[in-house]
């Protein structure tokens, strides 16, 4: 299984907790995939909902990399994505509505196929504690 293509994502904070207006730095790297097979990479910082309702999603930061962007065309090397996080919506774990913030990396490998990997982080009021519902 180790020779399967793999996308690894890491954040600058091991706790993966951020507050509004904080700067987030994500690094991602693709392994076990020849550089020539990669048509493009899309990296985004986004929130999406989960729960009873239809899923809503909004990309806060989005970059698309193509082989021509790199001098040697190798997109498998470690790349980074930096963004200042917005003030809302904050991460939320409600009853029928949940809001997740993720760093998502999508690698296009041709014939309309892609590999996706994402890493969830928390966007909270203080950067230290999440708002797990509207508790009094």
């Amino acid at each position: 299984m180790t020779d399967q293509p793999h996308i690894s994502i890491s954040l600058d904070r091991p706790t993966r907790q951020y507050a509004a207006d904080d700067e987030l730095l994500a690094r991602f790297e693709i392994s076990n995939l020849p550089a020539v097979n990669i048509q493009a990479i899309e990296a985004s910082v986004l929130w999406h909902t989960e729960g009873t309702g239809e899923e809503d999603m909004s990309a806060h930061e989005f970059v698309r990399l193509i082989p021509g962007d790199e001098a040697d065309g190798d997109l498998t090397r470690s790349q980074s994505l930096k963004t200042r996080l917005p003030r809302s919506p904050l991460s939320y774990a409600g009853k029928i509505v949940k809001i997740h913030w993720v760093v998502r990396v999508r690698v296009f490998v041709g014939r309309g196929r892609d590999l996706v990997e994402e890493l969830e982080f928390e966007l909270t009021q203080t950067g230290g504690e999440g708002s797990g519902g509207a508790r009094g």
Partner: peptide, 16 residues
């Protein structure tokens, strides 16, 4: 308003 309260929220299909 409780300190841990979720803020008001509105997207296409979900709301608080």
């Amino acid at each position: 308003i409780p300190l841990s309260a979720m803020h008001s929220f509105k997207s296409s299909h979900n709301a608080v």
